[in-house]
Structures are given as C-alpha cells and as structure tokens.
Amino acid sequence: TGTRRLSDLRVIDLRAELRKRNVDSSGNKSVLMERLKKAIEDEGGNPDEIEITSE
C-alpha cells in the first residue's frame, strides 16, 4: 500500500483502479488517466496522490 502520482501508474494499474471504481477500463493510457482523474475528483480525492493497494 502506498501513495503514487497518477502519472506514475502503469496501464495495468490504471485499469485496476478504474475497475475498483466500476469505471470503463478500455482505451489507451491517456484515456485511462483522464477517466481515473475524473473519477477521483468526483470522489473528492486528489488525483496527484492515489492510494494504491498492492496485490
């Protein structure tokens, strides 16, 4: 578990975070980053400090 910047995430991490939020996880990295950023902002979170749970 740790905090990472949105830009540091790999595509696989972006998809996992989107799936956790029940958000569409298809598309390229830039699309996924925008989608995740919006989802985090909608939750009231900070997209520059994403809580990542290692699996």
Rank of each mutant, 00 (worst) to 15 (best):
2 G>S: 14
3 T>A: 03
27 G>M: 00
41 E>C: 08
7 S>V: 12
28 N>T: 12
29 K>I: 08
50 I>D: 04
15 R>D: 02
33 M>C: 08
11 V>S: 11
35 R>C: 02
7 S>L: 07
26 S>T: 07
11 V>P: 08
40 I>V: 08
52 I>Q: 09
41 E>G: 10
18 L>G: 01
30 S>G: 13
54 S>M: 13
38 K>D: 09
14 L>W: 00
26 S>M: 08
49 E>S: 15
28 N>V: 12
18 L>N: 00
55 E>D: 07
16 A>L: 14
4 R>L: 13
12 I>E: 15
27 G>F: 00
14 L>N: 00
21 R>A: 01
26 S>Q: 08
36 L>W: 02
33 M>P: 02
15 R>S: 06
29 K>C: 06
50 I>P: 07
53 T>L: 14
19 R>A: 15
3 T>C: 04
32 L>G: 01
44 G>Y: 01
27 G>N: 00
40 I>P: 02
53 T>M: 06
8 D>T: 07
42 D>M: 12
34 E>A: 15
27 G>R: 00
3 T>R: 07
37 K>T: 10
45 G>V: 06
32 L>I: 07
8 D>H: 08
2 G>D: 15
6 L>P: 01
53 T>G: 12
34 E>C: 09
44 G>I: 05
46 N>M: 07
55 E>P: 10
41 E>I: 09
54 S>Y: 08
52 I>W: 14
11 V>R: 09
29 K>E: 11
44 G>V: 04
9 L>W: 05
32 L>N: 03
15 R>N: 01
41 E>T: 14
1 T>I: 07
43 E>F: 02
46 N>Y: 04
29 K>L: 08
11 V>G: 06
50 I>W: 12
50 I>A: 07
1 T>Y: 00
6 L>E: 03
36 L>R: 02
28 N>R: 15
10 R>A: 14
37 K>H: 10
14 L>R: 00
36 L>H: 02
41 E>K: 12
40 I>G: 02
48 D>L: 09
38 K>Y: 05
37 K>L: 11
19 R>I: 13
51 E>Q: 05
25 S>M: 07
15 R>V: 14
22 N>Y: 03
39 A>P: 02
3 T>D: 09
49 E>Q: 07
47 P>N: 05
35 R>I: 03
27 G>L: 00
37 K>N: 10
48 D>I: 05
42 D>W: 04
38 K>Q: 14
28 N>S: 14
19 R>N: 05
30 S>M: 14
46 N>I: 04
5 R>H: 12
53 T>R: 14
33 M>N: 05
21 R>T: 00
38 K>T: 09
9 L>T: 04
41 E>N: 11
50 I>Y: 03
32 L>H: 00
26 S>G: 14
41 E>M: 13
22 N>F: 08
47 P>F: 11
46 N>S: 11
36 L>V: 07
31 V>Q: 09
9 L>R: 03
23 V>I: 09
9 L>C: 07
29 K>S: 09
54 S>T: 13
11 V>N: 08
41 E>R: 11
51 E>I: 07
22 N>E: 12
46 N>H: 07
13 D>W: 01
4 R>D: 05
23 V>W: 08
31 V>N: 12
18 L>D: 00
23 V>K: 14
39 A>H: 13
43 E>S: 09
32 L>P: 02
18 L>A: 10
34 E>P: 13
7 S>R: 14
54 S>Q: 04
10 R>M: 13
16 A>N: 07
48 D>H: 04
1 T>G: 07
18 L>I: 00
18 L>H: 00
18 L>W: 00
26 S>Y: 04
5 R>M: 11
2 G>F: 09
13 D>M: 03
39 A>N: 03
16 A>D: 11
14 L>F: 02
32 L>E: 01
40 I>N: 02
55 E>A: 15
35 R>N: 07
30 S>C: 09
39 A>L: 13
46 N>V: 10
30 S>A: 11
32 L>D: 11
28 N>L: 09
10 R>G: 15
38 K>I: 05
36 L>D: 02
27 G>I: 00
31 V>I: 13
43 E>C: 02
17 E>T: 01
24 D>N: 13
35 R>V: 04
34 E>N: 13
11 V>I: 13
4 R>P: 06
36 L>Y: 06
18 L>S: 02
44 G>R: 09
6 L>N: 01
43 E>I: 04
38 K>F: 04
34 E>G: 12
5 R>N: 05
10 R>Y: 04
5 R>L: 10
37 K>V: 09
10 R>F: 02
48 D>Q: 06
43 E>D: 10
45 G>M: 07
45 G>I: 05
26 S>E: 09
